[in-house]
Every structure is written in C-alpha cells, then in structure tokens.
C-alpha cells in the first residue's frame, strides 16, 4: 500500500498543476489575511476572536483540496492513464484507497501551507501595529487543527465524488454548482415543507460545520465531522462499486 501511495503522490507532483495549487494557496490566503487585518479596527486586532478568524482564512485550502480530490481520480479516466494504473494494480479498490490516502496527505499539506502564510503575514503586521498576539492561546491552535482536518475531509469528499462521477468536467462543474446553488435551493425547499432541521445534514452544510467556525443553523463541531464522514463513506462505497464494475475501454 505504501508503494501505491508513493506512486499516487508522484502523479500529483509530476504535472504542472501542482505548482498552480501552491501558488493559488499562497496568493489568495495572503490577500485574504491582508484584507482582513487592513480593514479591522485597531482595538479588535489584539483580540483572540479576531485572530482566530484570521486562522480561518486558511479555508482557501478547502476548495483546492476538493478540486485536487476530484482531479486525482478523474484525470486518470480523462487521459486513459487508468489503463496502466489498473494493469499495475488490478485491485481497483486499492487504487481508490491509495488515492484517498494521497489526497489526505496533500490536503493536510495545503492547509499547513495556508496556515504558514497566515502566520507569515499576520505576525509581523500585528507586531508592527503593537497589537497583542495570542499565539499561545489554545483557541488559536484548536482552530488551526480544525482547518487541517477540514481540508482532509474536503479532499476525501472530492475523491469520493470523482469515483462516483468519473467524468472530470461533470464532476468539477457539478460539485461547484451543487455547493453554490444546489444546497441553497434544497435549504429553501426544506424550509417550505417545514423540515428546516434536515438542511444541516446536507453534505456541504455538514462540511461547513466541520471547520469549527460554527454559526447559523449548522450542526455543532463533533456531529458536523461525523455527518461529513458518513457522506464520504456513502459516496465512497458507491464510487468504489462503480469503479469496480466499469469496463476500461
């Protein structure tokens, strides 16, 4: 299995889009942190609440994690590399499993990189403006850890979606439309038929709760993580079954 994961990690690193992921994370996280600090009041800047919100700008990594998760599965079908992949490893579940593990590793790395950028921008800036920094505060560290776990969950969701849909364009576009339109629409419908409570169990509402920022009608943190994992498992099972049955032509 470790050989397979190494192979999957090598696949990710040996195409140019790898650098695009890293550049997007660094640039967008940096801009988001700068905008947030720049627009805040002097007094707020020194609070734990403000600074843990800064940690949350590392959430840029989530979107890239799910795109990566979808792509590492669907790119094999798009370019036909799935043929040599399955010839080398006839057990297709093992291949999907190795991709999931590679996705977890890289997604955790994405979140870490994002957090490093947050620190690299925020710490000098806050020091210069004489705001007290709360690096030792447990809330900051909890939030950072939750960002990493959250990124991992989004990547796993991406791998599962990729295994179910298999067509790269359909999976990427479908997922983005679902996140930004589909769930909003469903939440509205749930409200109309008086089952508002069900909305929190939708996959991306659960994932939203699992980044620890809380709020609104979302589940609390623990249940949010649990429901996210259930969705990943359900889609993962369907995806593994579809991949197993598929004729690779």
């Amino acid at each position: 299995m470790s050989a397979l994961v190494r192979s999957e990690l090598l696949k990710i690193r040996t195409i140019r889009s790898w650098w695009a992921y890293l550049i997007v994370i660094v640039v967008f996280t940096g801009l988001a942190v700068a905008a947030q600090i720049g627009s805040a009041d002097g007094i707020d800047r020194g609070t734990v609440d403000f600074q843990s919100d800064l940690v949350e700008t590392a959430g840029i990594a989530l979107l890239l994690a799910i795109i990566l998760g979808i792509t590492i599965v669907t790119t094999e079908f798009r370019f036909g590399t799935v043929t040599p992949t399955f010839l080398a490893t006839p057990s297709r579940q093992l291949v999907i499993g190795a991709k999931a593990i590679a996705g977890v590793v890289v997604a955790a790395g994405f979140a870490l990189l994002s957090l490093v950028v947050v620190a690299a921008v925020a710490l000098p800036w806050l020091t210069i403006v004489d705001a007290e920094t709360h690096l030792a505060d447990s809330e900051i560290w909890t939030r950072a850890a939750q960002q990493i776990l959250s990124s991992v969950l989004w990547a796993l969701m991406g791998v599962a979606i990729g295994a179910v849909v298999q067509s790269q364009v359909a999976a990427l576009v479908g997922t983005l439309v679902w996140i930004f339109l589909g769930e909003t629409l469903l939440i509205g419908i749930f409200g109309l038929v008086d089952v508002d409570g069900a909305a929190a169990y939708l996959p991306f509402q659960a994932l939203d709760a699992a980044d620890g920022s809380g709020g609104g009608d979302l589940l609390s943190y623990g249940p949010g993580v649990a429901v996210s994992l259930v969705w990943v498992a359900l889609l993962g099972i369907v995806g593994a079954a579809r991949t197993h049955r598929r004729d690779v032509t």
């Binding site: 192979s7 090598l10 696949k11 040996t14 889009s17 370019f79 036909g80 590399t81 043929t83 490893t89």
Partner: peptide, 22 residues
C-alpha cells in the same frame, strides 16, 4: 494504446509513477 499517458507528464516521470506502484 500509445496515448494512455498524461500529456503534461514527462516520459521519465510516467515510468517512475508506474515503477513506484510496482
């Protein structure tokens, strides 16, 4: 099929990926 290679990957890296898996 000779075309079952990711176009953006080098020939050497294509082989390295498969060698790693094996």
């Amino acid at each position: 099929e000779a075309s079952e290679v990711h176009p953006g990957r080098s020939g050497r890296n294509h082989l390295r990926v498969l060698a790693a898996a094996a």
